[in-house]
Design a protein around this nucleic acid. Structure first.
Lengths: 249, 249
DNA sequence: AAGAGCGTACCGCTGAGTGGAACGCCGCCG
DNA sequence: CGGCGGCGTTCCACTCAGCGGTACGCTCTT
């Protein structure tokens, strides 16, 4: 279980020490974050650089293009993104707001794609980034379509308050989820980020038994009225769902 | 230089054994491709799975979501993609054809982003995929703006013939490159894939001294006339260029 | 039934990997 | 200034993680 004494474990500790926000980290910072011996970090980092997973610059290391390339070969999420892209485009063209594609992983949402124009709202989400399920529209639809066990697990666990509007009352959240299951739509109103509204619909698999992913439209309070796009979002999600199932051999 | 006798080297040989086309590979296939000992591959692959870089399924291994996530944190290409997205959207919305963003790496082009709609031409390119520089529009613009040394290196090296239209005559190619440098536009006419046309413009850095990336529009022979979009593509590339340079520090 | 090819398990040898220690180089501050 | 703390780098003797040949059990195909 301990990663600290295998080369691969160390390597991944180093790679994962880079938060989504960090661009370049000095050796000392890596040592601090990983808790590994300085010598080890030095050597492993150098090895990683040799293999094009890290770039060694003047001011430290950064995750490199080799990693980028490698990651984009990951098959499951990759084909999903490729098939979804045209539908995401549709959604963007109709709304001209930020469009997301995400999947659920445990108690978090992972964003697989994010597209937006020049006027897009300032969202904290990034492609490959994560967010708690309970305070995002995508998270809620996905949770609504998850198994009873997973749902109760999230509802039981601590629900982090991200903004004054974050729903942290399990009862309230449960009601929102069953509503999402009925309507095939979930909303978020400034629950993860102040000033942001969001509407999401699920992409279903296994003849509607599970939700494999979800897509959403996000916009700023004021000009953006999520309900307006309910039909568009639901229709797009349904179209993508049928494309995925029919292409399923 | 030999990767075979370091754990990290082995791990990467395994990961890179997955071609862009492969989705799931059995252990035996990995052994064949890497040339490593069966026992070693077994163990290292298991380790990689433990670290969420591989998924171990019924029929073999596949690159996993952990790798996908990790790759999307790579900073340099990531911020480029994020800043470029709105411009790529513009381009797509105006042309409704497949839009690419790519950089050059040695004698190859790496595609960082690819967006397209339902009617998109069937392109062999994939996000994170590679193509030779000499037979793609993006490759040619980038090469045109590269240093003299790099240009001659590519022109000297063997120029693979991909289709009957591939330009493999160095003189011809050189002429196309200088024309691309003058006009700020490069074309490809069925040189990498039969039935595909493409037009590309460079995104410049260092006050126009180098090309950091390039974007392109691709369409099928017949309805698609690349020259039509010359101004649009050039203008979009210029706009992105200025966004990148004006970005404070 | 016999063979080929697969994934898995075992195990003794060994050198790749380890991490503590020491070094030289800054930039900061008293 | 001179001393100090933090940095990246290098060194080195120990040792156990990793190695890979071998063997086994399974599932197909022949």
């Amino acid at each position: 279980m301990e990663d600290r004494d295998t080369v691969l474990g160390k390597a991944l500790m180093i790679l994962r020490a880079f938060g989504p926000a960090d661009s370049v980290l000095p050796l000392a910072e890596l040592v601090r974050r990983t808790g590994l011996a300085k010598g080890s970090v030095h050597r492993v980092a150098a090895d990683l650089a040799r293999h094009r997973l890290l770039d060694k610059g003047e001011h430290g290391y950064r995750l490199s293009g080799g990693l980028f390339e490698l990651g984009l070969r990951a098959s499951a999420e990759r084909t999903l993104v490729e098939l979804a892209t045209p539908f995401l485009q549709d959604l963007y063209e109709r709304t001209h707001e930020t469009v997301h594609l995400g999947i659920r992983e445990g108690h978090e949402v992972v964003y697989l794609a994010k597209i937006g124009g020049h006027r897009q709202a300032r969202t904290p989400s990034r492609t490959g980034g994560r967010m708690p399920v309970h305070c995002t529209a995508i998270g809620k639809v996905l949770l609504a379509h998850a198994t009873r066990e997973e749902r109760t697990a999230v509802l039981a666990g601590p629900l982090e308050r991200r903004t004054p509007h974050t729903v942290i009352a399990p009862g309230m959240l449960r009601r929102q989820l069953s509503r999402a299951l009925e309507t095939g739509i979930a909303y978020e109103r400034e629950e993860s980020t102040p000033g942001l509204l969001c509407i999401a619909a699920p992409i279903l698999g296994n003849n509607g038994q599970t939700a494999t992913a979800a897509l959403s439209v996000t916009g700023p309070t004021g000009r953006f009225k999520p309900e307006t796009h309910a039909n568009t979002v639901r229709a797009t999600a349904a179209a993508l769902t049928s494309t995925l199932t029919h292409r399923h051999h």
